[in-house]
Design a protein around this nucleic acid. Structure first.
Lengths: 240, 240
DNA sequence: CGACTGCTTGAATCCCTTCAAAGGAAGTGG
DNA sequence: CCACTTCCTTTGAAGGGATTCAAGCAGTCG
């Protein structure tokens, strides 16, 4: 029984409680290998052919690629309740690397029982599929964010997303949260150099929108941050 | 029987022919409303709550978003055999707009029979899920492309993707293909201004890599284009 | 054939990067 | 527990890739 490990996953895939007890029972009884990982460890790497996926129980993780020139792009962030590499259930070869950003507890789930569960419990199968569709929606928004918005706006947008997603699992009370990223990490996420990240953070602070210090983010003006970040949470597809 | 409408879809989801006759039969017998659309028409819009998805039978389509400042970002291109908005099967509200770039024949499929098919034919359900995962992989690559690469490289990368995808359905013999995009469209896809697109195209031509004229792309030096585009087709997850 | 859309080119400007350097925080080892 | 290293943050200055502005040209369509 993994019921406390899957609490945030359930909050995410079943915010209004429509899954049956049988569904929840099946999910809670998935064989899961609980492992503690340190910060900065690769969970799976680009090019791997994994036979399992990984539920993030707590901590932060990222998906990143490195270009031929050696530049890193972070394509998404993952928090408790996410299954970053659920895609590997149907895509043989990893096209991206998932890395822990903090100490993380993860639950490894072999593909075989996972696929069987999806087949035997269609509501769960649909819910799993849906989470990958939401991930895709986030990637799409990031394409627009990185492609069209100015660095200042981009940064605000990223911070808005982090806050909203963390709030859904109760980790951003009062619009403040842990954000275990260095300025270099943030730069890799929004496609901006470290130096410029530093200047933009300074500007967002002098504008009275946020304080970001010691990997702790505090939003001082939430409507203001959403406005400067051109942020609309619709793409996160939260129904709760 | 829609067997000729789904030919390219089948090529994509079943390149090595593992689906059973029952699977293929079920797919071919999906109730499908065939419609011809002119160029520049929205298939579904951001904010819509569709009850159907759309198989692209022939023609080109794009997925795009408009930012608060009025800039458009194209997040992906779609060609024959793609189901651009399959996501709407499980995500109630559209977070992006799909638009035809040419005259297109599309087949609208109601969600209900589609979902039933996925449930009744697990191999098809998995294949459908898989196509949305490949779409997500493409979005991820685009994030990296737009976020980290220079405009010149970005452009080459986009062209490589178009060629490779069109080749899988036989529409890019000899590394030449129709590419019904204006320079403004290309700019919106790679996050670059029209003026700069023009200069980059000129540069790619003088470098002897491509010719792009009258919406017709001809690659003169495929290895060279892949190299300057930092292109590796792995993210397209073609198994055939 | 005039209006429109798309392509092309030049010039000025700017957002952001790169280079450089120094201070601070955190972790390591003697 | 302090010297030392290393990583992270901060700030200044110079340079560059890309944008914006502007204008001319070509092709197309009603």
């Amino acid at each position: 029984m993994n019921s406390h490990f899957i609490a945030n996953l359930l909050r995410k895939i079943d915010p209004i409680d429509v899954l049956s007890d049988g569904d929840k029972h099946a999910l809670a009884n998935l064989p899961m290998q609980i492992v503690q990982l340190r910060a900065g460890q690769d969970i799976v790497r680009q090019g791997d052919r994994p036979t399992r996926s990984c539920l993030l129980i707590d901590g932060f993780a990222s998906a990143s690629k490195v270009t031929g020139e050696g530049n890193r792009q972070i394509a998404s962030l993952y928090i408790s309740g996410d299954i970053p590499d659920l895609q590997s259930l149907h895509l043989r070869v990893m096209d991206i690397t998932f890395t822990t950003m903090t100490t993380c507890r993860v639950g490894f789930i072999q593909h075989e029982p996972l696929a069987q569960m999806c087949a035997a419990f269609p509501a769960l199968g649909a819910a799993m599929w849906r989470t990958t569709l939401v991930d895709a929606a986030v990637y799409r928004e990031w394409v627009a964010n990185v492609g069209q918005r100015q660095a200042h706006t981009r940064m605000a947008h990223l911070l808005c997303e982090v806050i909203v997603r963390l709030r859904t699992i109760g980790l951003a009370q009062d619009y403040a949260c842990d954000l275990p990223m260095t300025q270099a990490d943030i730069g890799d996420a929004i496609g901006v150099s470290v130096v410029h990240v530093n200047r933009i953070l300074g500007r967002l602070r002098t504008e009275g929108l946020i304080i970001f210090k010691n990997k702790r983010l505090k939003v001082l003006d939430w409507p203001g941050l959403m406005a400067t970040g051109d942020f609309d949470a619709a793409y996160l597809h939260l129904e709760g």
